[in-house]
């Protein structure tokens, strides 16, 4: 279920990137796509009835069912990278606005 939700978010992000001509909206679409992707990655490591993969005094048996911790580590890294890219894109958006006085690609006369 979460996997499907993740994939739907990825598709919504892609749709936004293809159809929107406003720079801020494009950045938001990219973020929606990244969130969908992160959700998908976490869902890959999900195990039914699994507990957090940390050995404690209570949970100290290797016979317990743990969720896969690796996708969680991957998502943490992906979130940080996504934040960096978003911050950089917003800095570019600001620079573009200063030059063109608009966020809309149509109004800038850009053909692409």
């Amino acid at each position: 279920m979460i996997q499907i939700a993740g994939l739907i978010l990825i598709l919504i992000g892609l749709y936004g990137l293809i159809t929107k001509r406003n720079i801020i909206k494009m950045i938001i679409a990219l973020n929606v796509l990244e969130i969908g992707l992160n959700l998908f990655i976490v869902s890959v490591g999900y195990v039914q009835d699994g507990i957090a993969p940390i050995l404690t005094e209570v949970n100290n048996s290797s016979g317990l069912i743990f969720v896969d911790p690796l996708p969680q580590a991957l998502v943490l890294t992906a979130i940080v990278i996504g934040m960096g890219t978003t911050a950089l894109s917003l800095a570019f958006a600001r620079k573009i606005y200063a030059t063109h006085q608009t966020f809309d690609l149509n109004e800038m006369g850009v053909e692409e």
Partner: peptide, 28 residues
Amino acid sequence: QFLKVFHYIIIGTLASSLYLLGIVILYA
């Protein structure tokens, strides 16, 4: 060339997201 680099950012980030999705499927 901020606008042109912005296009590169969008397509580059999208590309690396697709790559990540690909390797996660392989991991699964």
